[in-house]
Design a protein around this nucleic acid. Structure first.
Lengths: 227, 227
DNA sequence: GTCTATACGATGATAGAC
DNA sequence: GTCTATCATCGTATAGAC
């Protein structure tokens, strides 16, 4: 039930072919899950693509859902680490963007740059995350919270402090709205192409980030009726 | 393949027990899908709850996914109809909110009031919609586009016209962001409770709408660098 | 400890009798 | 239209080989 993945990061000399069974499963699963969804791909296809036996998944991870959880935690960790690193670099100063925009960028950029464009199995991590975010099952929400809540709370506190004129409850709502725009944009649901007749995609991280920062900055600073 | 549901709205005298097989399936499926997700409920459970034969679903709808599509279109239509009705009522005038806020409310309110709080099977329509929105499979995106694009485009055009100082491309991005906040908030993913230690839920439609309007209004009006 | 082969119950889908 | 019977496939579990 409680397998240890502590040594799973060790790789062999061959760079293009992970030697360990666990890594090959994770890699194949990440590619297939993100491409066709959790329900759209079977365990047999994953193990075939990974070149391992069918039973290996349940042996190493316990279940298909546990495989998803391991996969998610593995990719979420670099995002939260980079977020905290960038958060520590935020500071007021002449010639720097306003503090709020620094915080928003520090929060958003790792999710986009590490979630959307890194390698073959990172290209669709955003979609996987989005799918988890709107899932009603308790398990998925637990995975998300466990992976992201610590860094998320740190940013919420920082934003509350930079917006003293906005009540804390209001900031929390707006933070929630920000998560929606972030996740929906990362999922790149194709709606924006559909609405704009294909003129836009969200593949360009820098463009999406710039648009997001302008939109969210204004939203967070919006005046409140009771001061 | 192309079954007609034109007469499906006709009900018999008994108000608490839909007579037609199709209606009974739709009603049972809506309740179960929304409660436990598309993957979490089987065809046998749906047909048992509806009191019909297992094969009836595939006979009347073609597949489990087609059943989902029919269910979704049936609930989406009142939303788009109400949106268009409210859109026609929007007008500049003394004592009225700014045009942008009128448009946003006309777009958002039907999705929340008809999607979140109507009856037993409407309570979780938002979650079902959110799940469709972030799905990568072409089928689901087709369902969503088909259900909502016409009214969505009408609102996009209206918003573009009320914001002459914002480039059209920027408005399209911001409209996309709005869809993200709306869908994420409707899905009520539990993240806001998780972040704020349970102080908030999104069950109160009027509160959520008020917060959304303030946030989105400011976001849409945000200044752009090139005028 | 890892890995393999194989079997089990349940699922969505389908064919054909009524 | 509605039924029963049946199918391939799914996730999972386990016995046993290295």
């Amino acid at each position: 039930m409680d397998h240890s993945f502590a040594e799973a990061d060790r790789r062999d000399a061959a760079p293009d072919m992970p030697a360990r069974t666990i890594d090959r499963i994770l890699s194949a699963a990440a590619r297939l899950f993100a491409a066709r969804g959790m329900a759209g791909v079977g365990l047999r296809e994953i193990t075939a693509e990974a070149g391992v036996n069918l039973a290996a998944v349940n042996y190493h991870f316990g279940s298909k859902e546990k495989l998803l959880e391991a996969l998610f935690l593995r990719r979420a960790q670099p995002i939260t680490a980079e977020r905290m690193r960038l958060l520590a670099l935020c500071a007021e100063g002449p010639g720097r963007p306003p503090m709020l925009e620094q915080l928003l960028e520090a929060f958003l950029r790792p999710a986009f740059s590490l979630g959307l464009e890194a390698g073959v199995d990172g290209a669709t991590f955003g979609r996987l995350r989005a799918r988890l975010a709107v899932e009603s099952e308790e398990l998925y929400r637990r995975i998300l919270a466990q992976a992201f809540n610590p860094s998320t709370r740190a940013f919420l506190e920082a934003i509350v402090q930079t917006l003293p004129e906005v009540p804390r409850a209001e900031v929390e709502w707006r933070f929630h709205f920000m998560l929606g725009t972030m996740i929906y944009t990362m999922a790149d649901s194709g709606r924006i192409q559909s609405i704009t007749d294909g003129r836009f995609g969200t593949c360009d991280v820098e463009t999406a980030l710039a648009k997001l920062l302008r939109f969210l900055g204004a939203g967070f600073r919006a005046a409140t009726p009771d001061g």
